[in-house]
């Protein structure tokens, strides 16, 4: 194996810039996508547990649809197909005037896809709330809304913090798919550095280390949150 090592290439101003800008896009796509994922995911997850049959059906369809199609295909559909399928005026706007089309599309696709996974965690959390508590809420004359608002959601949201950690990490990793529609995030930038300089080893190592750091930081933050939100008396992490 003959290979010319040149770690200094990473510190050349141009390539260092690329890495930093890539990191910026990765973090922005992941965080914006996460906001959508949490909002939609919580609504859909709660929707799967409510008494109303039709709401449950719609939410189940959402989860099955978004979960069983690869994110890459979803990314392409949002980017290439949706502008053709919506009314002409909107489609024209999406293709010509929408600012940062790759970024917006990546955020929407990643957010709605992750929402289906978040929804499953939320539903599992609500189903873990002991039946006795729900019955007690009803017996006290709380309405369905009040039972969710004061009993089921506060407990289940605290229970699902640990599994959410891994979903949150996944969002950062999945943001790399944005490169398929042309967004130069971290993975794309490292690939580009490899192509320009033939220093693939250095470029991919740099990206790998940055991803590991992201994972460490996210895990540390979520651990703090876990300690803060753990409910005394409910058993450990894997429930």
């Amino acid at each position: 194996m003959n290979y010319n090592w040149n770690w200094a290439v990473l510190l050349e101003e141009e390539y260092l810039q690329w890495l930093i800008s890539g990191l910026g896009w990765t973090v922005s796509v992941a965080l914006c996508g996460w906001v959508i994922a949490m909002t939609v995911g919580c609504l859909v997850g709660v929707g799967r547990t409510v008494p109303n049959r039709w709401i449950r059906l719609v939410c189940t369809c959402y989860v099955e649809l978004f979960r069983n199609i690869p994110l890459l295909v979803q990314m392409f559909i949002w980017y290439f197909a949706i502008p053709e399928l919506v009314p002409d005026d909107i489609g024209r706007w999406m293709k010509r005037d929408m600012p940062n089309p790759e970024f917006v599309t990546a955020v929407v696709a990643l957010g709605l896809y992750t929402a289906s996974r978040v929804a499953e965690q939320v539903r599992a959390g609500i189903e873990t709330v002991p039946v006795g508590l729900k019955s007690a809420a009803t017996a006290h004359g709380l309405s369905t809304y009040q039972s969710y608002r004061y009993i089921q959601l506060p407990i289940s949201f605290r229970l699902i913090v640990p599994p959410m950690t891994s979903e949150f990490l996944t969002v950062f990793k999945n943001s790399s798919l944005a490169l398929t529609i042309g967004l130069l995030e971290l993975t794309a930038q490292s690939q580009q550095i490899a192509e320009y300089t033939f220093q693939g080893f250095e470029a991919f190592t740099a990206a790998t280390i940055i991803y590991v750091f992201i994972a460490l930081i996210v895990t540390a933050l979520m651990h703090l949150l876990e300690r803060h939100t753990a409910i005394p008396g409910f058993v450990g992490k894997d429930s």
Partner: peptide, 24 residues
């Protein structure tokens, strides 16, 4: 833990680059 913190696409890029290099 290393593998679980990097995206699959990056791993694919890694091996496209590494495998031919390692095997010559």
């Amino acid at each position: 833990n290393l593998i679980r913190s990097v995206p699959l696409i990056l791993v694919i890029f890694w091996f496209y680059f590494l495998v031919p290099l390692a095997l010559g």
